[in-house]
Design a protein around this nucleic acid. Structure first.
Lengths: 137, 137
DNA sequence: GTAAGTACGTACTAAAATGTTAGTTTGAGT
DNA sequence: ACTCAAACTAACATTTTAGTACGTACTTAC
């Protein structure tokens, strides 16, 4: 049983991302990495080969793609199927766990795709508030 | 009106994150940045001062915190209220737009916090599939 | 014969993100 | 008087991340 201070500090028994040493931070980093997000989204459409992924995810380099895939595989988000033929044939797909995160990531991505025009337009939404005796910005 | 090829390539009129030059990628980067995620989550609990945020988000440095806050402010996710007194007093809070993303980010974070133990445990979920004539890994 | 495609690994370089330290200004606490 | 806290910024050092180029081993297309 965790100490009282630990329990209080982390706000419960589960990991708390706001605490420095929380291991969830690594997973978060893997999932929200530049290419991680995009690969997850790309694979939501189904099973894809390496080169198909490279074409789907605009701008990835071979190196980054394979690195990202390895990380996502380690975390159990994607599974890799190797057909032992030549030339090589490898397929990637989401695991059930991968499907779950991908949905959440997708939701975020969708929201952002929608909001981006507004954000780019008036880079100042409801401007900084004015309260008694205040200098804004 | 966008060209046919553009429309086809992006899969619609909205931004498509899978396309290299999509401006949404920048916003995505801002939101999913190492500290961006955590600040958004921290601010979900309410209005906070700079030093309170620093204490809440474990591990941030002054520099990163203020940089992250500036970015989030530019994107219209957080609003900054300056009380013109000395010593300085500044408060940060989520804008309506910020509340929206924060919820999605929070959902992702919650899922990850829950899944992390499993992920860390058996870094191999359903192991790489076996199909006819296949060498796995 | 030569080029291209496949799925990477490796080495090296460049660019971006992050961290560290110091300094600013002024009031409150001891 | 001296220190601390507040909210930053600037300068500089380091770490992480990403990109480029090349090699592999073999096949199909030109």
């Amino acid at each position: 049983m965790p100490s009282l201070s630990e329990t209080i500090q982390s706000g419960g028994l589960k990991g708390n991302l706001l605490v420095t040493q929380c291991p969830s931070r690594q997973i978060l980093k893997d999932v929200t990495s530049r290419w991680g997000v995009l690969v997850l989204i790309a694979l939501q459409t189904g099973r894809l080969r390496f080169a198909e992924l490279r074409r789907t995810v605009g701008g990835v380099s071979d190196r980054m793609l394979s690195q990202t895939l390895q990380t996502l595989e380690r975390d159990g988000f994607v599974s890799r199927t190797v057909y032992d033929v030549v030339p090589p044939h490898v397929e990637y797909s989401l695991t059930p766990r991968g499907c779950d995160v991908a949905e959440l990531v997708r939701a975020l991505a969708d929201w952002i795709e929608n909001a981006t025009p507004d954000i780019m337009a008036g880079k100042a939404p409801p401007p900084t508030e004015s309260l008694s005796g205040i200098t804004s910005d």
